[in-house]
């Protein structure tokens, strides 16, 4: 179809593009700030006005991964010369690596473990929430369930209260059953958080899939389970992807409960990163490096599923 456009329409269109660009810049500014700080030399991190042009370095990332302490006196030149390049970067900043007393091995900071914890907890809770949510939504969507609307409302109502309100009871309950500071504890909690969201979102998506698809499969000799896996799941892929992204982001970013319910073994990255502010003079570049790395998995996950997400957003609008 040939688009006939007047000059006013074209001008409005340009105006809209400019507005979108401005909004995008505003949204991206904090991310740029964190990303650039992660590559800045320490003294530039807090300079006023902020430095925009600088020579990027990876010292903050090296420091992020190792345990360090302040140098009391300058390091001996022969020790400095023998040190690997990354250790030199630490010496350059007036700090030294903490090595274990007997073996002299370099000790890692707490960050890699916390990062891994975040990955484990967010991934497993997302799989659980989306999986259970999809099954539940399918049931509500396809079968007559007694008190369906009441049950759905009940499921939604679990999100009607700020979660932090139940933090203290949760803490006491978790302590009583020994779930404090365990991966399972956080996984259960985040799954419960996300489940209501997942059920509602997936119900919307599954409602959109015509029943005839499954009925055709049922008539063609498949069981309902087979029809679900062969027809409904592929058709719901878009919805599953969109739901998974949202659940993953929620679990990945969760701060308050992670802070209260974990301290060492199962602690995730969000409560760990700010806890580093307090040790000595705050080194913002290291905190920024930790934050920057923490942003990446969500960004990558969302990027990989971007096509599904776009389709998910317009679902129902473009279907014939």
């Amino acid at each position: 179809m040939a688009a006939v456009r007047t000059s006013t329409e074209r001008a409005l269109n340009r105006l809209a593009i400019v507005c979108v660009l401005i909004v995008t810049l505003i949204f991206l500014a904090p991310i740029y700030w964190i990303a650039s700080t992660a590559f800045k030399p320490r003294e530039l991190a807090t300079s006023v006005p902020p430095t925009v042009l600088f020579e990027p370095e990876i010292t903050p990332f090296v420091k992020l991964f190792v345990r360090r302490s302040q140098l009391r006196e300058p390091v001996a030149p022969e020790v400095y010369d023998e040190a690997p390049w990354w250790e030199k970067l630490v010496y350059d900043d007036g700090e030294r690596l903490v090595r274990s007393g007997r073996t002299g091995e370099v000790q890692l900071s707490g960050y890699p473990d916390r990062f891994l914890n975040s990955l484990i907890v967010a991934t497993i809770s997302t799989i659980l929430a989306v999986g259970m949510g999809t099954f539940t939504a399918y049931g509500f969507s396809r079968f007559k369930v007694k008190g369906e609307s009441d049950l759905l409302f009940f499921i939604l109502s679990t999100r009607m209260l700020p979660p932090i309100v139940v933090a203290i009871p949760m803490f006491l309950m978790y302590r009583a059953v020994g779930l404090n500071d365990t991966h399972a504890g956080l996984i259960i909690l985040y799954t419960a958080f996300n489940l209501s969201f997942s059920v509602w979102l997936m119900k919307g998506f599954i409602d959109e899939i015509p029943r005839e698809y499954e009925e055709a499969a049922l008539v063609d000799g498949y069981t309902r389970m087979q029809a679900f896996f062969k027809i409904v799941l592929p058709e719901a892929a878009t919805g599953i992807a969109a739901t998974a992204v949202f659940c993953f982001i929620t679990a990945w970013n969760e701060y308050a409960f992670a802070l209260i319910l974990t301290n060492r073994e199962a602690q995730t990255a969000p409560p760990f990163i700010p806890s580093q502010v307090g040790s000595g003079l705050p080194d913002w570049t290291v905190i920024a490096a930790g934050t920057f790395l923490f942003l990446l998995p969500v960004a990558i996950f969302t990027f990989l599923l971007r096509n599904h997400l776009l389709r998910g957003m317009s679902f129902g609008a473009i279907r014939k």
Binding site: E215, A216, L218, V219, D220, G221, Y222, T223
Partner: peptide
């Protein structure tokens, strides 16, 4: 439905 051998 699967056991009736009918097409729809």
């Amino acid at each position: 439905a699967a056991d009736r051998d009918i097409a729809f």
